[in-house]
Design a protein around this nucleic acid. Structure first.
Lengths: 131, 131
DNA sequence: CAGGATCCCGCCAGATACTG
DNA sequence: CAGTATCTGGCGGGATCCTG
């Protein structure tokens, strides 16, 4: 593919600013966790939703982590939080365009996980079988 | 889009087995972290590589986390680890087809992060500005 | 209903030292 | 070179109680 031999000092990644790269990695660390991905999935499917309905859609999440993750997503501009001043309180969460675009980007990972789950479990069983 | 009103007990996600869904979420939790993503990126770019060259391509990672992440990826069948019985030791890591396919799935997330980094930083600054 | 505030435990990850 | 082994502090995250 490349002409000539590969020089040994060729940069490993594209020659991007390492500081920029670190920022991107941190951003990914923030955004690429299972809670964020799942909440994103739920909101893509369900549109604007209230707190407790999101909780229903994310089995296993604690209220603390749900609040925390939603706040982080709001801070990152992935969703908007609307408080309706009524009793009982009614808070709606709706994805922004940025949020939807992240949902699209994650879609590939989600699909990949679904498609390859059994293959990976088999690989793990095989790996654990050997010693 | 949908005929009729939406019944209130409509399932939030596609009506998948919740246990299957939990497994997928766990798998994503395993695989969607910044170290795995970065190592994947490096190996997609660099092909078969040795331990220390991978370390060079992943700035900021500790040797412990690199070993640990590589082992987990091997267990999941994302890469193969080849030990050459020479002195000094020479260990090569190479992605499997499964690993490459995950790299492709992550590509969207990586690109998304690069493209939207400044927008997100602006959103955070704005969010932190208000109180 | 949608959280805020606390307490607290587990394990994650960095630092350091050692080895085949 | 490519790891293991060990110690340790920090904090992620669950459980619980309380409130506008």
């Amino acid at each position: 593919m490349r002409p000539g031999l590969m020089p040994k000092d060729e940069p490993l990644l594209k020659d991007v600013d390492p500081r920029l790269n670190a920022l991107v990695m941190d951003l990914i660390g923030r955004v690429a966790d299972k809670w964020t991905m799942t909440i994103l999935e739920v909101l893509v499917e369900g549109g604007e939703m209230r707190f407790s309905r999101i909780a229903d859609g994310v089995p296993g999440i604690s209220q603390k982590m749900l609040t925390q993750t939603l706040r982080a997503m709001e801070r990152d501009g992935l969703l908007v939080r609307t408080v309706h001043p009524v009793v009982p309180p009614r808070v709606e969460y709706r994805l922004t365009d940025l949020g939807y675009s992240l949902g699209g980007a994650f879609c590939g990972v989600w699909t990949w996980a679904e498609e390859n789950l059994t293959r990976i479990e088999a690989s793990r069983a095989d790996y654990d079988g050997r010693e």
